[in-house]
Design a protein around this nucleic acid. Structure first.
Length: 636
DNA sequence: TTAGGGTTAG
């Protein structure tokens, strides 16, 4: 081809219209462009033919939700590019096959990528795979299926042909083994290079966050000769993923102090940390930062924002964000549903579920956890049963332990204890401790000692050190003033060396997170807190409240009952909130355990006597206290 | 003409 002809073709090249920066391309466009190329005879030129094929193939890779219209479209584009290859007048080149391997590498199944790899090896023109081939081929492994065999084959081939030290292949291998959870294998690859580059170091750091070894991850981070924004993100994400949320936020502060560029990925991890901590002020700050810097609200970022608002107690604002989001995926819908269920808005949760289905989004197992919780908090037993049955019948999802647990909870909360027991007995899988736990909680609500003892026995058989079982049973006895029973539980805990997880409540004041443990006097403003606690007791007593000392049995080791009630971590946090927050500001607490009856009653009364809205997130759900009432209607 | 690391729901 002469240079002038090439220029003309390039200038009017319709293939450039397939560039992904033009946004989604419909198959119809591809047909049009194909027709044009044919009419003008452009496809006779191998270069343009190859360019066209590669462009079509590259339109397809993306993580679309199976069965979504976009997914279908992309599958058709993949088929289209394969047809082009099959009917090509030109022999395939490594570039063309690389393009197809890459196109398949983003999908859930590495098999088609390997098909094209074999085609490359068996080509009559004796083509050889190159560094690009292995980057894509390795990248296709690790996402789908439990088998790491394909990945090992790709690794071996890359090794044989000497491509492992290519930085792209090297980092792809580390990431692949990390995705299989094979940390040792990732480490061996990492150690093969004497001086891995920043990308490989970050991949290794990510592999060590994912495996939960946060200390080693931090060592890797600190030992990096140089760090770019992605390395910072990886470390922040690591903290966030293992629940070390405070460290995540601290590192985010350092990142800003050092003037490192903040990206969407950073903010997603920061929002996750805020959601975990219940740090609404900091979460709001991130939202404002996004608006100030006009950051594009991607699906992931928007979803993280919805989650943050819901988990920080402001589900209304979370739903505002949700409705404004242009693009929603199954994560977004499930997050919103989970938030609504957590706040007791079961009916709304189910409405969103219907809307999601109308939008053609396929629910996952996680979605159904929210659906069933929504039914549970709304007391919709039959509807819950229908949804549970539809999981397998309509969507081919085998229920997980969690779904069975939700069903027991659903029957139990509705007072249908017999149905709950029957459900457990008819489970096709071995009932797990949580299922018995849900039954035990129902026995607490409905004060069924006999069944409660049985559920507890089953629960302890499975998890002998599950302190939750002991606490629940102890409460059942205490509620019925069966002090002998309470004592037995206490002795049995001591004998088995079971310790109750210490209660911890967190409250955010002025963007700072304050943490309180049971009987904790380490806070710098403890003196004032103590005075406020006395004031609370005085005013509650005036209002006719007597502490329910039986709930003290939560604190198995504490002998001073009356005092201990006052010292539960959420009371400390509430007292601090009353002191440190402005007049009328609502108090938001995040607690690691379930709220006990006494704290629940006391908080209701505090909300009335002090005229304060109090929002408590406990292990399971939210409680909105206002004017002496709680949104859970004493049902949790 | 092709490339690697960080990002969401229970």
């Amino acid at each position: 081809m002469t240079t002038s002809l090439r220029n003309i073709i390039t200038r009017h090249n319709p293939i450039t219209l397939l560039d992904s920066s033009f946004g989604p391309v419909a198959l119809a466009h591809v047909h049009q462009i194909h027709a044009q190329l044919l009419v003008h005879g452009h496809l006779n030129y191998p270069l343009l033919f190859v360019q066209f094929l590669a462009a079509v193939a590259l339109l397809s890779p993306s993580n679309t939700t199976p069965s979504s219209p976009q997914h279908h479209e992309r599958q058709l584009l993949l088929l289209y590019s394969q047809r082009l290859l099959d009917y090509s007048p030109h022999p395939p080149t490594t570039f063309v096959l690389n393009s197809l391997i890459r196109a398949h590498s983003r999908g859930p199944d590495p098999a088609p990528a390997f098909r094209f790899y074999r085609r490359l090896l068996c080509s009559p023109d004796a083509l050889s795979p190159d560094r690009f081939t292995f980057t894509f081929l390795v990248g296709s492994c690790g996402r789908g299926g439990p088998s790491s065999a394909a990945g090992e084959i790709a690794h071996a081939a890359a090794l044989r042909r000497g491509f492992v030290s290519n930085p792209h292949v090297h980092s792809a291998l580390i990431r692949m083994y990390a995705q299989f959870g094979l940390l040792d294998a990732a480490r061996r690859v990492y150690d093969e290079l004497p001086d891995p580059d920043l990308v490989s170091r970050t991949a290794m750091l990510g592999a060590v966050a994912a495996a939960g070894d946060i200390v080693l991850a931090r060592e890797l981070f600190d030992s990096m000769p140089r760090r770019d924004p992605i390395a910072w993100n990886a470390m922040i994400a690591g903290y966030s993923q293992v629940g070390r949320s405070r460290e995540a936020l601290e590192l985010f502060s350092s990142m800003q102090l050092e003037g490192v560029r903040v990206s969407v990925a950073t903010l997603v991890s920061v929002l996750t940390a805020c959601a975990h901590l219940g740090a609404l002020d900091q979460g709001k700050w991130v939202h404002a930062y996004m608006q100030r810097n006009r950051l594009r609200v991607t699906v992931t970022l928007g979803t993280a924002l919805v989650d943050m608002y819901s988990k920080c107690g402001d589900v209304g604002r979370g739903m505002d964000v949700f409705w404004r989001m242009q693009e929603k995926n199954v994560y977004t819908w499930s997050t919103a549903m989970s938030g609504l269920a957590m706040h007791g808005a079961g009916k709304e949760c189910l409405d969103i579920f219907e809307l999601m289905k109308e939008h053609g989004v396929l629910p996952t197992g996680v979605t159904f956890v929210s659906v069933l919780r929504g039914c549970s908090v709304a007391g919709l037993v039959e509807e819950g049963r229908r949804h549970f049955d539809s999981m397998r019948d309509q969507y081919g999802i085998d229920p997980w332990h969690q779904h069975y647990g939700c069903m027991v909870d659903l029957y139990g909360r509705a007072g249908r204890l017999d149905d709950a027991v029957h459900f457990i007995n008819s489970m096709p899988i071995e009932p797990h401790a949580r299922a018995w736990g849900a039954l035990l909680n129902a026995c607490r609500i409905y004060r069924n000692i006999e069944l409660g003892e049985y559920a507890m026995k089953k629960m302890v058989e499975m998890e002998s050190k599950n302190h939750g079982a002991y606490v629940l049973l102890s409460n059942i006895y205490a509620e019925s003033r069966n002090w002998g029973g309470v004592n037995d539980v206490r002795e049995s805990m001591k004998a088995k060396g079971v310790r109750k997880e210490p209660g911890c409540s967190v409250i955010e004041v002025g963007g700072e997170v304050h943490e309180f443990f049971v009987g904790d006097n380490s806070h710098p403003r403890y003196r004032e807190i103590e005075v406020m606690l006395r004031e609370i007791s005085r005013r509650l007593r005036l209002a006719g409240y007597a502490a329910k000392t039986n709930a003290v049995m939560f604190d198995i080791e504490d002998e001073e009952k009356e005092d201990a009630v006052c010292w539960h971590s959420e009371k400390l946090a509430i007292a601090f909130g009353l002191i440190a927050l402005g007049e009328g500001a609502s108090i938001r607490i995040v607690k690691n355990l379930r709220v006990c009856w006494d704290c629940h009653d006391a908080t209701k009364l505090i909300s009335k006597v002090f005229q304060r809205d109090i929002v408590v997130r406990d292990r399971n759900r939210f409680h909105h206290f206002r004017d002496g009432m709680c949104s859970c209607m004493d049902y949790w």
